[in-house]
Design a protein around this nucleic acid. Sequence first.
DNA 1: TCAATATATATGCATTTGCATCGATATCGT
DNA 2: ACGATATCGATGCAAATGCATATATATTGA
Lengths: 146, 146
Amino acid sequence: MNGAKPALPEVTVTAWARLMRAQRRGLSIVEGKLKDEGFPPLEWYDVLLELERRGPLRPRDLQATLLLAQSNLSRLLDRMVRAGLVERSSCPDDGRGLSVAITREGKFMRNKMWPAYAEGIAEAIGMRLERSEIEELARLLRLLIA
Amino acid sequence: MNGAKPALPEVTVTAWARLMRAQRRGLSIVEGKLKDEGFPPLEWYDVLLELERRGPLRPRDLQATLLLAQSNLSRLLDRMVRAGLVERSSCPDDGRGLSVAITREGKFMRNKMWPAYAEGIAEAIGMRLERSEIEELARLLRLLIA
DNA sequence: TCAATATATATGCATTTGCATCGATATCGT
DNA sequence: ACGATATCGATGCAAATGCATATATATTGA
Protein backbone atom coordinates (compact mmCIF):
# COMPACT_ATOMS: atom_id res chain seq x y z
CA MET A 1 0.00 0.00 0.00
CA ASN A 2 0.96 3.61 -0.34
CA GLY A 3 -0.75 6.18 1.84
CA ALA A 4 1.28 9.05 0.42
CA LYS A 5 -0.79 12.00 -0.68
CA PRO A 6 -0.21 13.07 -4.24
CA ALA A 7 1.60 16.37 -3.87
CA LEU A 8 -0.73 19.33 -4.13
CA PRO A 9 0.58 21.63 -6.84
CA GLU A 10 1.14 25.20 -5.81
CA VAL A 11 -1.21 26.51 -8.46
CA THR A 12 -4.03 24.51 -6.94
CA VAL A 13 -3.52 26.22 -3.63
CA THR A 14 -3.43 29.55 -5.42
CA ALA A 15 -6.67 28.78 -7.20
CA TRP A 16 -8.22 27.78 -3.89
CA ALA A 17 -7.18 30.96 -2.15
CA ARG A 18 -8.44 33.07 -5.01
CA LEU A 19 -11.73 31.23 -5.10
CA MET A 20 -12.26 32.13 -1.45
CA ARG A 21 -11.25 35.71 -1.98
CA ALA A 22 -13.14 36.28 -5.18
CA GLN A 23 -16.31 35.00 -3.61
CA ARG A 24 -15.95 37.09 -0.48
CA ARG A 25 -15.26 40.17 -2.52
CA GLY A 26 -18.18 39.57 -4.84
CA LEU A 27 -20.50 38.82 -1.99
CA SER A 28 -19.57 41.95 -0.13
CA ILE A 29 -20.10 44.05 -3.24
CA VAL A 30 -23.55 42.62 -3.84
CA GLU A 31 -24.59 42.67 -0.20
CA GLY A 32 -23.44 46.26 -0.05
CA LYS A 33 -25.63 47.27 -2.97
CA LEU A 34 -28.62 45.51 -1.47
CA LYS A 35 -28.18 47.03 1.93
CA ASP A 36 -27.65 50.49 0.49
CA GLU A 37 -31.12 50.29 -0.93
CA GLY A 38 -32.66 48.86 2.20
CA PHE A 39 -33.19 45.37 0.85
CA PRO A 40 -32.89 42.09 2.74
CA PRO A 41 -29.78 39.94 2.43
CA LEU A 42 -28.85 38.01 -0.66
CA GLU A 43 -30.08 34.63 0.49
CA TRP A 44 -33.59 35.96 0.62
CA TYR A 45 -33.33 36.66 -3.06
CA ASP A 46 -32.03 33.19 -3.74
CA VAL A 47 -34.92 31.58 -1.93
CA LEU A 48 -37.44 33.77 -3.69
CA LEU A 49 -35.94 33.09 -7.09
CA GLU A 50 -35.85 29.37 -6.53
CA LEU A 51 -39.47 29.31 -5.46
CA GLU A 52 -40.53 31.46 -8.34
CA ARG A 53 -38.75 29.29 -10.87
CA ARG A 54 -39.63 25.90 -9.53
CA GLY A 55 -42.91 26.52 -7.75
CA PRO A 56 -43.61 25.53 -4.15
CA LEU A 57 -40.81 23.46 -2.70
CA ARG A 58 -40.05 21.61 0.45
CA PRO A 59 -37.36 23.00 2.71
CA ARG A 60 -35.44 19.85 1.99
CA ASP A 61 -35.16 20.73 -1.68
CA LEU A 62 -34.32 24.34 -1.07
CA GLN A 63 -31.63 23.22 1.25
CA ALA A 64 -30.06 20.94 -1.32
CA THR A 65 -30.09 23.59 -4.00
CA LEU A 66 -28.95 26.53 -1.96
CA LEU A 67 -26.48 24.65 0.21
CA LEU A 68 -27.79 26.05 3.45
CA ALA A 69 -27.67 24.24 6.77
CA GLN A 70 -31.01 22.77 7.74
CA SER A 71 -31.51 24.77 10.92
CA ASN A 72 -30.46 27.98 9.22
CA LEU A 73 -32.93 27.47 6.44
CA SER A 74 -35.65 26.72 8.94
CA ARG A 75 -35.11 30.05 10.62
CA LEU A 76 -34.54 31.91 7.40
CA LEU A 77 -38.00 30.75 6.36
CA ASP A 78 -39.36 31.93 9.71
CA ARG A 79 -38.12 35.41 8.95
CA MET A 80 -39.39 35.38 5.40
CA VAL A 81 -42.79 34.19 6.53
CA ARG A 82 -42.88 36.96 9.10
CA ALA A 83 -42.04 39.40 6.33
CA GLY A 84 -44.89 38.00 4.26
CA LEU A 85 -42.70 36.91 1.36
CA VAL A 86 -43.31 33.18 1.55
CA GLU A 87 -45.90 30.85 3.02
CA ARG A 88 -45.57 27.49 4.67
CA SER A 89 -48.32 24.96 4.27
CA SER A 90 -48.48 21.35 5.19
CA CYS A 91 -47.42 18.85 2.64
CA PRO A 92 -50.20 16.63 1.30
CA ASP A 93 -48.13 13.54 0.59
CA ASP A 94 -45.72 13.64 3.51
CA GLY A 95 -46.87 14.48 6.99
CA ARG A 96 -43.38 15.40 8.10
CA GLY A 97 -42.78 17.82 5.31
CA LEU A 98 -43.92 21.28 4.42
CA SER A 99 -44.55 23.10 1.24
CA VAL A 100 -43.09 26.55 0.94
CA ALA A 101 -44.48 28.93 -1.64
CA ILE A 102 -43.62 32.46 -2.69
CA THR A 103 -46.36 35.02 -2.16
CA ARG A 104 -47.40 37.86 -4.38
CA GLU A 105 -45.46 40.17 -2.12
CA GLY A 106 -42.49 37.89 -2.42
CA LYS A 107 -42.54 38.13 -6.18
CA PHE A 108 -42.78 41.86 -5.94
CA MET A 109 -39.82 42.00 -3.60
CA ARG A 110 -37.69 39.81 -5.82
CA ASN A 111 -38.40 42.09 -8.71
CA LYS A 112 -37.50 45.18 -6.77
CA MET A 113 -34.27 43.61 -5.63
CA TRP A 114 -33.08 42.56 -9.04
CA PRO A 115 -31.62 45.84 -10.33
CA ALA A 116 -29.43 46.28 -7.27
CA TYR A 117 -28.40 42.66 -7.45
CA ALA A 118 -27.60 42.89 -11.14
CA GLU A 119 -25.54 45.98 -10.55
CA GLY A 120 -23.51 44.11 -7.99
CA ILE A 121 -22.94 41.16 -10.29
CA ALA A 122 -21.85 43.47 -13.05
CA GLU A 123 -19.40 45.16 -10.74
CA ALA A 124 -18.08 41.90 -9.32
CA ILE A 125 -17.75 39.99 -12.57
CA GLY A 126 -19.21 41.62 -15.64
CA MET A 127 -16.92 44.61 -15.65
CA ARG A 128 -13.77 42.69 -14.89
CA LEU A 129 -13.76 39.99 -17.52
CA GLU A 130 -14.28 39.71 -21.25
CA ARG A 131 -17.30 37.81 -22.32
CA SER A 132 -15.24 34.85 -23.46
CA GLU A 133 -13.50 34.78 -20.11
CA ILE A 134 -16.80 34.77 -18.29
CA GLU A 135 -17.89 31.82 -20.35
CA GLU A 136 -14.73 29.96 -19.53
CA LEU A 137 -15.04 30.82 -15.85
CA ALA A 138 -18.60 29.55 -15.80
CA ARG A 139 -17.48 26.33 -17.44
CA LEU A 140 -14.66 25.73 -14.96
CA LEU A 141 -16.78 26.53 -11.94
CA ARG A 142 -19.41 24.13 -13.10
CA LEU A 143 -16.88 21.36 -12.86
CA LEU A 144 -16.24 22.27 -9.25
CA ILE A 145 -19.89 22.01 -8.37
CA ALA A 146 -20.91 18.95 -10.35
CA MET B 1 -27.89 61.47 -20.01
CA ASN B 2 -28.61 57.80 -20.16
CA GLY B 3 -29.14 55.92 -16.93
CA ALA B 4 -29.84 52.64 -18.69
CA LYS B 5 -27.87 49.72 -17.32
CA PRO B 6 -26.00 47.72 -19.90
CA ALA B 7 -27.87 44.44 -20.01
CA LEU B 8 -26.30 41.78 -17.86
CA PRO B 9 -25.66 38.71 -20.01
CA GLU B 10 -27.14 35.51 -18.74
CA VAL B 11 -23.77 33.81 -18.64
CA THR B 12 -22.52 36.41 -16.21
CA VAL B 13 -25.32 35.58 -13.83
CA THR B 14 -24.54 31.90 -14.25
CA ALA B 15 -20.89 32.51 -13.49
CA TRP B 16 -21.89 34.50 -10.41
CA ALA B 17 -24.17 31.80 -9.09
CA ARG B 18 -21.54 29.15 -9.65
CA LEU B 19 -18.88 31.24 -7.96
CA MET B 20 -21.06 31.39 -4.87
CA ARG B 21 -21.84 27.71 -4.95
CA ALA B 22 -18.34 26.52 -5.74
CA GLN B 23 -16.96 28.49 -2.85
CA ARG B 24 -19.57 27.27 -0.39
CA ARG B 25 -19.01 23.73 -1.45
CA GLY B 26 -15.24 23.97 -1.23
CA LEU B 27 -15.41 25.70 2.10
CA SER B 28 -17.66 23.09 3.58
CA ILE B 29 -15.38 20.31 2.37
CA VAL B 30 -12.32 21.90 3.91
CA GLU B 31 -14.04 22.92 7.13
CA GLY B 32 -15.34 19.40 7.41
CA LYS B 33 -11.87 17.89 7.14
CA LEU B 34 -10.51 20.28 9.72
CA LYS B 35 -13.28 19.69 12.17
CA ASP B 36 -13.06 15.94 11.76
CA GLU B 37 -9.55 16.12 13.05
CA GLY B 38 -10.38 18.48 15.87
CA PHE B 39 -8.71 21.53 14.38
CA PRO B 40 -9.86 25.12 14.61
CA PRO B 41 -11.69 26.78 11.72
CA LEU B 42 -10.09 27.69 8.45
CA GLU B 43 -9.60 31.38 9.17
CA TRP B 44 -7.26 30.52 11.99
CA TYR B 45 -5.06 28.83 9.45
CA ASP B 46 -5.20 31.84 7.17
CA VAL B 47 -4.13 34.17 9.93
CA LEU B 48 -1.32 31.88 11.01
CA LEU B 49 -0.06 31.46 7.46
CA GLU B 50 -0.13 35.15 6.78
CA LEU B 51 1.81 35.90 9.94
CA GLU B 52 4.30 33.18 9.26
CA ARG B 53 4.92 34.39 5.72
CA ARG B 54 5.02 38.09 6.30
CA GLY B 55 6.15 38.34 9.90
CA PRO B 56 4.34 40.34 12.58
CA LEU B 57 1.53 42.39 11.14
CA ARG B 58 -0.97 44.92 12.29
CA PRO B 59 -4.59 43.90 12.44
CA ARG B 60 -5.22 46.49 9.78
CA ASP B 61 -3.03 44.62 7.32
CA LEU B 62 -4.42 41.22 8.15
CA GLN B 63 -7.84 42.63 7.64
CA ALA B 64 -7.03 43.95 4.20
CA THR B 65 -5.47 40.70 3.09
CA LEU B 66 -7.99 38.31 4.53
CA LEU B 67 -11.04 40.44 3.87
CA LEU B 68 -12.41 40.11 7.36
CA ALA B 69 -14.55 42.71 9.07
CA GLN B 70 -12.59 44.75 11.60
CA SER B 71 -14.57 43.76 14.65
CA ASN B 72 -14.52 40.11 13.65
CA LEU B 73 -10.80 40.12 13.25
CA SER B 74 -10.40 41.81 16.60
CA ARG B 75 -12.28 39.01 18.29
CA LEU B 76 -10.72 36.30 16.19
CA LEU B 77 -7.38 37.53 17.49
CA ASP B 78 -8.77 37.45 21.04
CA ARG B 79 -9.50 33.77 20.62
CA MET B 80 -6.18 33.00 19.01
CA VAL B 81 -4.33 34.82 21.75
CA ARG B 82 -6.27 32.86 24.35
CA ALA B 83 -5.27 29.68 22.53
CA GLY B 84 -1.64 30.79 22.64
CA LEU B 85 -1.19 30.82 18.87
CA VAL B 86 -0.49 34.50 18.39
CA GLU B 87 0.66 37.43 20.52
CA ARG B 88 -0.36 41.05 20.51
CA SER B 89 2.19 43.69 21.36
CA SER B 90 2.08 47.43 21.10
CA CYS B 91 3.25 48.98 17.93
CA PRO B 92 6.42 51.06 18.20
CA ASP B 93 5.70 53.56 15.43
CA ASP B 94 1.95 54.00 15.86
CA GLY B 95 0.37 54.40 19.26
CA ARG B 96 -3.02 53.35 17.97
CA GLY B 97 -1.83 50.19 16.38
CA LEU B 98 -0.75 46.76 17.50
CA SER B 99 1.65 44.24 16.25
CA VAL B 100 0.44 40.68 16.02
CA ALA B 101 2.94 37.86 15.82
CA ILE B 102 2.67 34.11 15.49
CA THR B 103 4.05 32.08 18.38
CA ARG B 104 6.01 28.87 18.34
CA GLU B 105 2.82 27.05 19.21
CA GLY B 106 1.09 28.84 16.39
CA LYS B 107 3.63 27.61 13.89
CA PHE B 108 3.26 24.13 15.22
CA MET B 109 -0.50 24.29 14.88
CA ARG B 110 -0.33 25.56 11.33
CA ASN B 111 1.90 22.67 10.43
CA LYS B 112 -0.40 20.14 11.99
CA MET B 113 -3.37 21.60 10.18
CA TRP B 114 -1.83 21.58 6.75
CA PRO B 115 -2.38 17.95 5.74
CA ALA B 116 -6.08 18.09 6.49
CA TYR B 117 -6.34 21.41 4.70
CA ALA B 118 -4.46 20.12 1.69
CA GLU B 119 -6.67 17.10 1.50
CA GLY B 120 -9.70 19.36 1.40
CA ILE B 121 -8.24 21.53 -1.33
CA ALA B 122 -7.42 18.47 -3.37
CA GLU B 123 -10.95 17.21 -2.99
CA ALA B 124 -12.52 20.57 -3.76
CA ILE B 125 -10.35 21.51 -6.73
CA GLY B 126 -7.37 19.29 -7.43
CA MET B 127 -9.37 16.19 -8.21
CA ARG B 128 -11.96 17.90 -10.31
CA LEU B 129 -9.90 19.81 -12.84
CA GLU B 130 -6.96 19.16 -15.10
CA ARG B 131 -3.84 21.03 -14.31
CA SER B 132 -4.26 23.36 -17.26
CA GLU B 133 -7.79 24.12 -16.16
CA ILE B 134 -6.62 24.94 -12.68
CA GLU B 135 -4.11 27.35 -14.12
CA GLU B 136 -6.80 29.01 -16.18
CA LEU B 137 -9.14 29.18 -13.23
CA ALA B 138 -6.45 30.79 -11.12
CA ARG B 139 -5.83 33.34 -13.84
CA LEU B 140 -9.48 34.27 -14.20
CA LEU B 141 -10.09 34.50 -10.48
CA ARG B 142 -7.11 36.78 -10.11
CA LEU B 143 -8.84 39.24 -12.39
CA LEU B 144 -11.84 39.24 -10.11
CA ILE B 145 -9.74 40.09 -7.11
CA ALA B 146 -7.34 42.63 -8.57
C1' DT C 1 -48.51 -5.80 12.28
C1' DC C 2 -45.07 -3.98 15.08
C1' DA C 3 -40.61 -2.68 16.55
C1' DA C 4 -36.47 -0.59 14.79
C1' DT C 5 -34.61 2.75 12.11
C1' DA C 6 -34.55 6.70 8.99
C1' DT C 7 -36.12 11.25 7.42
C1' DA C 8 -38.19 16.06 7.75
C1' DT C 9 -38.39 19.95 10.39
C1' DA C 10 -38.04 22.73 14.68
C1' DT C 11 -35.77 24.49 18.74
C1' DG C 12 -32.56 25.45 22.91
C1' DC C 13 -28.17 27.02 23.71
C1' DA C 14 -23.49 28.58 23.04
C1' DT C 15 -20.64 30.86 19.66
C1' DT C 16 -19.92 34.04 15.99
C1' DT C 17 -21.19 37.89 13.25
C1' DG C 18 -22.65 42.62 12.02
C1' DC C 19 -23.39 47.15 13.28
C1' DA C 20 -22.82 51.22 15.76
C1' DT C 21 -20.02 53.56 18.74
C1' DC C 22 -16.21 54.63 21.84
C1' DG C 23 -11.52 55.90 23.22
C1' DA C 24 -7.13 56.86 21.77
C1' DT C 25 -3.68 58.45 18.70
C1' DA C 26 -2.36 60.42 14.08
C1' DT C 27 -2.68 63.54 10.37
C1' DC C 28 -4.04 67.62 8.02
C1' DG C 29 -5.10 72.45 7.15
C1' DT C 30 -4.55 76.86 8.70
C1' DA D 1 0.94 75.01 17.33
C1' DC D 2 -3.88 73.86 17.37
C1' DG D 3 -8.34 72.50 16.34
C1' DA D 4 -10.84 69.61 13.03
C1' DT D 5 -10.96 65.32 11.09
C1' DA D 6 -9.40 60.66 10.02
C1' DT D 7 -7.67 56.14 11.39
C1' DC D 8 -6.81 52.12 14.54
C1' DG D 9 -8.59 48.91 17.37
C1' DA D 10 -12.05 47.39 21.13
C1' DT D 11 -16.65 46.61 22.80
C1' DG D 12 -21.93 46.42 23.82
C1' DC D 13 -25.73 44.60 21.87
C1' DA D 14 -28.87 42.47 18.62
C1' DA D 15 -29.10 39.07 14.98
C1' DA D 16 -27.47 34.98 12.69
C1' DT D 17 -25.10 30.57 12.87
C1' DG D 18 -23.68 25.84 14.23
C1' DC D 19 -24.51 21.98 16.88
C1' DA D 20 -27.05 18.77 19.38
C1' DT D 21 -31.36 17.22 20.29
C1' DA D 22 -36.48 16.91 20.20
C1' DT D 23 -40.77 15.74 17.79
C1' DA D 24 -43.39 13.81 14.41
C1' DT D 25 -44.05 10.99 10.54
C1' DA D 26 -42.22 7.38 7.07
C1' DT D 27 -40.06 3.29 5.84
C1' DT D 28 -38.17 -1.13 6.52
C1' DG D 29 -37.81 -5.86 7.92
C1' DA D 30 -38.95 -9.70 10.85
